[in-house]
Design a binder for these strands. Structure first.
Length: 561
DNA sequence: ATTGCGTTGTCGGG
DNA sequence: CCCGACAACGCAAT
């Protein structure tokens, strides 16, 4: 009970399940809750966009309110960590620093510099893991020193470890009676939570995701209480283009730690234990949390996890650099209404359904545009309210078939995928009002609408809404071919014969979604070692089609001998 | 060496 | 709405 402690909030912007704050309260006579608002760090390393800034500031406001209610307060320090903390340690006579450790490289570096600063100043450090279910180092250790690279393997390792640590105890007003937060007269202004205006950040978009622990908890309760939610929720069956989110909507709160994954995990376990209907347990939701854990684990032990170059688990691909095509994707001008509607929702709301993420990610990378997943990752990081270093990069590698997932022939069709669950195109009509008058028949591919239909809809394709930037059937077939080649090149030549034995050209031609005569029947395949097929594949692949020219030896189709 | 599997592809048919 | 066929990868179990 003798320390004078700064508890440093970074993520973990909550009072429930906050073990290092509990530690601070139990070991100190005085605790100063501090958040360092380091813009260089948050704009740079964290790549925060305006909506994420707003969410963060709201979360800090909420933290402040909750701390005040307990008889404490939050000190927000603007500027760099080191200079700021050095000054406060001296001024406040601090003897201990508590914080949550984080695994991202930029946080880990910050951890190190905080430790050396504390060593220099003679300040004790107490830190622990609170952002993930487990200390991911335990998972890596249990797997023999390497991160498991498949989800299945990950679950095996997790079963060895057993259940995660229980959430920390609640913090009560009594804690802050025993352990004071000294208030300094006249510094309210200096250490308050800044506004967006203070920071010169402009956002005029509706608040759909108010930041903060209070809102997160409210949202959590609302969903848990709604009939059957906890038991019937199953991820793969949610609809990818909802007008209202039909998923939990909790991810933004987990990403900055307004909510605790441990508390959530145990909450679901309790629902399962008390449920009469054990046939539909909320395990699928727990599995979502475990997916997050999986990506955190791999990210923590993989060099250059958010890059292709120097990343040992990432397939090296000669992605095309095409700023113009990238801009069209980012700004919802691809000419594919389904894709553009998703990108519009992303920009306006900071949230899109996970399957919608898959669709646009596939489109940008291996499906259509053949642009690096890193570019898409950066856009998501800026715009998604739930942006998360590890999960985001992991999913982009997944979707681009660069790591974890390898079935590159499974390409989302930007026309049909959405139509399956939303044949009337309500989602498109909402986010792309310019197309709202099109008949459902044409809403997913308005460029096929006859001129009179376009006039009737008062939207001329090519003028009021762009023509499709690529021919999906052509480019996706070409991309499959490229992918197959670069993989066989990187793997050696053992599988080449098998790889090119059956020719994708026919498939590509006959799978037109517009009326395009009945397909020729596919006869039984002949696996002939004949080399003619190979050259045929390659010459087709190098045909100039409506896409940027190929470049780089990795993806250049070559004649196989 | 061979087989089976993978959180979320597409298509056609019932 | 669900199923199987399709085509097909890396990885792990056998």
């Amino acid at each position: 009970m003798t320390h004078r402690t700064i508890h440093l909030f970074r993520k973990g912007l909550r009072l429930h399940d906050n073990p290092s704050l509990v530690w601070a309260l139990e070991s100190s006579a005085v605790v100063y809750p501090v958040f360092v608002l380091d813009r260089a760090f948050l704009d740079g390393a964290m790549r925060m966009g305006a909506l994420r800034w707003r969410f963060l500031l709201q979360s800090l406001e909420d933290l402040q309110t909750r701390l005040v209610a307990l008889g404490s307060r939050l000190y927000v320090l603007q500027g760099g960590y080191e200079a700021g903390l050095r000054q406060l340690v001296r001024r406040w006579g601090v003897t201990q620093l508590t914080f949550d450790t984080e695994v991202e490289p930029f946080y880990a570096r910050l951890d190190d510099s905080l430790r050396s600063l504390c060593e220099e100043l003679g300040v004790l450090v107490h830190s622990g893991v609170a952002h993930t279910l487990y200390d991911v180092r335990r998972i890596i250790k249990a797997n023999g020193g390497e991160a498991p690279l498949t989800y299945k393997k990950f679950l095996q390792v997790q079963s060895i470890l057993g259940e995660p640590d229980k959430p920390a105890r609640e913090i009560t007003p009594q804690d802050f009676q025993k352990c004071k937060t000294p208030m300094e007269e006249g510094n309210e202004e200096q250490y308050r939570v800044p506004s967006l205006e203070d920071l010169g950040i402009e956002v005029d978009l509706e608040v759909l995701w108010p930041g903060g622990e209070s809102h997160g908890l409210k949202r959590l309760e609302k969903h848990l209480e709604s009939e059957g939610w906890g038991e019937n929720f199953s991820k793969p069956r949610t609809i990818p283009n909802p007008l209202l989110p039909n998923t939990t909507g909790l991810s933004p709160y987990f990403s900055v730690g307004c909510l605790s994954v441990r508390s959530f995990y145990y909450r679901l376990s309790n629902i399962y234990a008390q449920s009469k209907n054990h046939s539909l347990p909320p395990v699928s939701l727990q599995r979502q949390v475990l997916w997050r854990e999986f990506f955190y684990t791999v990210a923590s032990s993989t060099p250059n996890f958010t890059k292709m170059a120097g990343n040992p688990i990432c397939l090296q691909i000669g992605w095309h650099e095409n700023q113009e095509a990238l801009e069209k994707w980012k700004e919802a001008r691809t000419g594919f209404p389904w894709i553009d509607a998703i990108m519009t929702q992303l920009r306006q709301e900071g949230w899109i359904h996970h399957l919608a993420r898959h669709a646009v990610a596939c489109f940008l990378t291996r499906g259509d545009l053949w642009i690096s997943w890193e570019e898409g990752m950066k856009v998501f990081e800026e715009l998604l309210m739930d942006a998360d270093y590890s999960v985001n990069a992991g999913n982009w590698m997944w979707l681009s078939a660069s790591a974890f997932f390898h079935q590159y022939t499974r390409i989302f069709c930007p026309v049909r995928f959405g139509r399956r669950t939303d044949p009337e195109g309500q989602y498109i009509r909402k986010y792309l009002p310019v197309l709202k008058n099109f008949p459902s028949k044409y809403i997913y591919e308005p460029w096929t609408a006859p001129e009179e239909v376009q006039l009737e809809a008062r939207c001329i394709i090519g003028k009021d809404y762009p023509l499709p930037m690529v021919d999906h059937v052509e480019v996706s077939q070409r991309n499959m071919c490229l992918m197959r080649q670069l993989r066989s090149e990187q793997e050696g030549t053992a599988q080449l014969t098998r790889d090119v034995a059956d020719d994708p050209v026919e498939i590509g031609v006959k799978r037109e979604h517009q009326d395009h005569g009945p397909s020729e029947e596919r006869t039984s395949k002949h696996f002939s070692p004949d080399g003619d097929h190979k050259t045929q594949v390659c010459s087709w692949a190098s045909d100039p089609i409506r896409l940027p020219e190929l470049s780089g030896e990795v993806m250049r189709p070559r004649t196989v001998t």
